[in-house]
């Protein structure tokens, strides 16, 4: 794996496909991919939940790309998107994902989410250096 002080990852997810997965598999789908807090935030409103879940799916995959482990099959729940009261989102890593980040000395993480129409996108930036729990992105 190429080492460097800066890593980026990006991923695009089709919202209607996420809605289909939720319709087909329900909680079995969300519980395999998302933390309890993420599930609580995304909710069950069909007008908003699929887009929120899709953006978080993109963030998890983008994080795996930034870690250089997109093929490694890490637990998606090890990458958690948290949203502050102001609306800014941040990343918190757990378990194996945290272990990979620590091994690569990637201490600062930032995430930006967006969705438009049927697609949600996430971009993640990681910076080597002293560990910070999370770095908020602009709202």
């Amino acid at each position: 794996m190429a080492a460097g002080p800066l890593r980026i990852g990006v991923d695009l997810v089709q919202i209607s496909q996420v809605a289909n997965s939720i319709d087909r598999f329900g909680e079995a789908f969300t519980r395999r991919l998302f933390t309890d807090d993420e599930i609580r935030y995304c909710g069950t409103d069909p007008a908003t939940a699929p887009g929120r879940f899709a953006a978080r799916m993109a963030a998890k995959e983008a994080t795996f790309k930034a870690l250089g482990v997109a093929d490694g099959g890490l637990d998606p729940r090890g990458v958690e998107v948290r949203r502050s009261a102001s609306g800014a989102c941040s990343l918190t890593l757990h378990g194996a994902a945290r272990g990979h980040a620590d091994a690569a000395h990637l201490g600062s993480w930032s995430v930006s989410l967006s969705h438009e129409g049927d697609y949600a996108i996430a971009m993640v930036v990681a910076l080597a250096g002293k560990k910070q729990e999370s770095v908020d992105s602009p709202p």
Partner: peptide, 13 residues
């Protein structure tokens, strides 16, 4: 895709 693989896994289960 990775998303599709999750659907496949749940359907297999």
């Amino acid at each position: 895709t990775s998303h599709a693989s999750v659907n496949v896994m749940l359907a297999i289960e």
